[in-house]
Amino acid sequence: MARAQSPRRRLIATLAAWGVALTIFFPVLWMVLTSFKTEASAVAMPPELLSADWTLENYAEVWQRSDYPRFFWNSVVISIGSTLLGLAIAIPAAWSMAFVPGKRTKDLLMWMLSTKMMPAVAVLIPLYLVFQRIGLFDTKLGLILALMLMNLPIIIWMLYTYFKEIPAEILEAARMDGASLWSEIVYVLTPMALPGIASTMLLNIILAWNEAFWTITLTTTKAAPLSAFIASFSAPQGLFYAKLSAASAMAILPILILGWFSQKQLVRGLTFGAVK
């Protein structure tokens, strides 16, 4: 890749890339800036930046008026719980599809993906009724199950494409070495596929954290995660930009920071077999 690039071209490319990246990022940045302004400053016209009144008041007020730690904890439990449960079911399934493929494997995968195409709104009422009936409504377990099932096809697909890169000979070697199926998966496949599993895990935590339909409709207070927290904030508060921004920032910052720190791992496996 050591190609001679004229410094001029390189400078233009760098400037253009940064311009585009900052534009894409700007809404998030603007929201965070707004969250530190006073309400008056937040809606001032023309928009204030250097002259703005900076304050931490919004965060203090949001923190005081709502039970942020509970919402936060629910989000953590639900996203991590659904991810771990999903992996436990998906790893064996992906093993089967990647290493013992049959004529129907591709169809099976496509069918799994198609279950995700059913619009959530379409099945809202039945699921609401079922969840009420079997006592899963407004429970963390209920949301863990729902989000796990919602994302299972994506998890299986990601793991499947990742497992396919692993040479089957290595698993055969393990079999020759006397490994049972369980040992083969635990001692050989899983450690070898760790980067892919990590990436799948991250993506799934992000998807589960940001899910805002089932988490809002299948909870009231007890199990409500941050998506419900933000929904409750935008509704009755009216247009208090600064406080809304502060609440928004509190809802997304944990996952944003996790994402930033782990983006290398995330991106590595985020190919769905698109890269050969």
Binding site: I170, E172, A173, A174, M176, D177, S180, M192
Partner: peptide, 26 residues
């Protein structure tokens, strides 16, 4: 029986010691 594969099929995440010990551990 023991088998030596064309690609060697060594376990990349284990040290040489662990590779050799794997069948014994199993």
């Amino acid at each position: 029986l023991a088998m030596v594969f064309q690609s060697y099929a060594l376990y990349p995440h284990m040290s040489v010691r662990k590779n050799i010990a794997f069948p014994l551990k199993m």
